[in-house]
């Protein structure tokens, strides 16, 4: 590795330095655009006591859900967690701390964290359980609550393509939280489907500049589909 070249060649190297009780921010929405191999590496390392920040927590045997059976997650900050039996069991048993956070607030917490903004006011959640213990303030006659931003010891991100400098391009709705997570990690690790040479990506088309990326690895992906909804080919009208 030299200069701006972020490429590493093993998942062990990609997640080196991750220790017990760290905070990890993960990209992905449901099972779409999740850094599936980086998650597997966390499982393999057997790291425990993690605080995870992610919109969801995977399913029982895929995504972040695979970190549950060995009790690797201490706390999760998420907006929606209902797809996972072991998660439910650990939450009901009080073995897993869950901080439910509105989806837009979660996205903004990552964005602000990565942008050096410690907190922001939002109307989202005012007058609800989310507002408990938070500062409230009126602007122009409307009520807002103060939400603190989030940064992580690590951020784990899935992108489609990258150049060796870590400039990233995402694909379709697999983008979701990934660009935000990428900005908010002290160490940001990105796995991609394809790494190209520097200069091959059009600078105008880069979604996340390489400055946010510390380590980059090329992987192969299962890309499991959570809700497979189709229409018969014969009735497809096309949009």
């Amino acid at each position: 590795m030299a200069g701006f070249d972020k490429v590493v060649t093993s998942y062990e190297e990609a997640m080196a330095g991750l220790e017990d009780n760290m905070t990890v921010i993960a990209g992905g929405f449901g099972l779409c655009g999740i850094p599936e191999n980086l998650i597997s590496e966390i499982k393999r390392k057997g790291i425990k006591g993690l605080t995870l920040v992610s919109n969801n927590c995977g399913v029982d045997d895929f995504g972040l859900g695979i970190l549950l059976p060995n009790r690797q997650i201490k706390k999760i900050v998420a907006s929606y967690v209902g797809e996972n039996a072991e998660f439910e069991r650990q939450m009901m048993a009080g073995e897993l701390e869950v901080e439910l956070t509105p989806q837009g607030t979660l996205a903004e917490k990552m964005r602000a964290g990565g942008a050096g903004i410690p907190a922001f006011f939002t109307a989202t959640g005012f007058g609800t359980p989310v507002a408990e213990g938070k500062e409230e303030r009126q602007f122009n006659g409307r009520d807002y609550i103060l939400e603190e931003s989030i940064t992580g010891d690590f951020a784990i991100v899935k992108a489609w393509k990258a150049d060796r400098y870590g400039n990233l391009v995402f694909r379709k709705t697999a983008r979701n939280f990934n660009p935000l997570a990428a900005t908010a990690g002290k160490i940001t690790v990105v796995e991609v489907e394809e790494i190209v040479e520097v200069g091959e990506l059009d600078p105008d088309q880069i979604h996340t500049p390489g400055i946010y990326v510390d380590r980059l690895i090329q992987g192969t992906f299962e890309k499991r589909i959570e809700q497979r909804t189709v229409q018969p080919s014969s009735t497809a009208a096309g949009e």
Binding site: F29, L31, C32, W160, K172, K223, T229, V230, S233
Partner: peptide
């Protein structure tokens, strides 16, 4: 609309997944 079996794409979902 929903895709057909031929055009289904794991990278393209809605908020209901």
């Amino acid at each position: 609309q929903f895709p057909t079996e031929e055009t289904i794409d794991a990278d393209l979902i809605n908020a209901g997944k």
